[in-house]
């Protein structure tokens, strides 16, 4: 890290102050939460840092049957919060434990992960699968499903806005998260988050998202539709695995090739579905 050009450090007391500072810097100010992305790279244009971790946005609470997470909550706070642990059979604990290593989880915030939105990251895939909704404040208040944000110009939005919180809706069923990296703690080469609701031996709803394709996590609606109304079991898992292999949009990058990603995406979706089905039936 080279903070050579930074000449001011501000601690924003509330969202209004953060927004007015951000606007005063006109592109040369940066919001600082966990810092694991911002302070990792060169800070070529940044002259002022605006610390947003002391504005009271670090809470995790049950809300409307789901859970609402303040933007500056660290991944560790989420992991250790009773509300998050109870949410959909502990899926948030499973996802958070798949992200990096404990000291980085002590620093990284959910808001930072959502806004940085690295294509290989674990959290975007999980947030999209879980139907997360983001609330922010810029010139106006904004609210949108994370999935829709990622399809639009979210980077532009967050240049002049502060993310407030992320809400996760209740699900009557279970989710599972799978990833493959070069090591257990490395970034994903492919990741997948799947959820199932099962009633009377039949799948009532399904959520399937695949990320690090190498593009960011996206749902596969065609796969979800192919699961609904079916009976969970080996025959279905094999059929779905083949369908994922046929339909998932994957590409090459320096970390992995397209053919390998295609195969691996099928395997990860299969594994996640098997575990989700077990959880949903329990």
């Amino acid at each position: 890290m080279d903070g050579g050009r930074i000449h001011r450090f501000h601690v924003a007391r509330d969202v209004e102050e953060a927004l007015s500072l951000l606007s005063a810097y006109g592109g040369k100010g940066a919001l600082l939460a966990g810092g694991v992305d911002l302070l990792r790279g060169p800070l070529a244009r940044v002259e002022g840092l605006i610390d947003i971790t002391r504005m009271g946005l670090s809470s995790v609470a049950e809300a409307r049957g789901g859970v609402t997470v303040g933007a500056t909550s660290t991944l560790t706070q989420i992991l250790e919060s009773p509300a998050a642990r109870r949410y959909v059979r502990g899926i948030l604990v499973e996802v958070m434990r798949a992200v990096a290593v404990p000291p980085l989880r002590n620093m990284a915030t959910l808001g930072g992960a959502l806004v940085s939105a690295h294509p290989w990251a674990d959290l975007p895939t999980a947030l999209v699968a879980l139907g997360a909704e983001a609330r922010w404040r810029g010139e106006k208040e904004g609210k949108a499903p994370v999935e829709d944000l990622y399809r639009g110009e979210f980077r532009k939005t967050f240049r002049t806005a502060v993310l407030i919180e992320v809400s996760l809706p209740p699900w009557d069923g279970a989710f599972a998260y799978e990833k493959v990296g070069r090591t257990r703690y490395d970034i994903a080469l492919v990741n997948a988050c799947c959820g199932l609701g099962i009633e009377d031996g039949t799948i009532r709803w399904a959520r399937v998202a695949v990320g690090a394709r190498p593009d960011r996590g996206e749902r596969l609606p065609e796969i979800e539709a192919a699961l609904v109304g079916r009976e969970p079991g080996e025959k279905l898992w094999t059929e779905i695995q083949e369908l994922v292999e046929a339909r998932v949009e994957v590409g090459d990058d320096r970390r992995a090739g397209r053919a390998w990603r295609r195969k691996t995406a099928g395997v990860l979706v299969r594994r996640a579905l098997i575990r989700a089905a077990r959880g949903a039936a329990a």
Binding site: G3, V36, L39, P103, N106, M107
Partner: peptide, 15 residues
């Protein structure tokens, strides 16, 4: 009491 990376922080964060 929580472990962090001091290389990824600027000094004023510990105020």
């Amino acid at each position: 009491g929580r472990a962090v990376r001091s290389c990824l922080m600027v000094a004023p964060q510990v105020q």
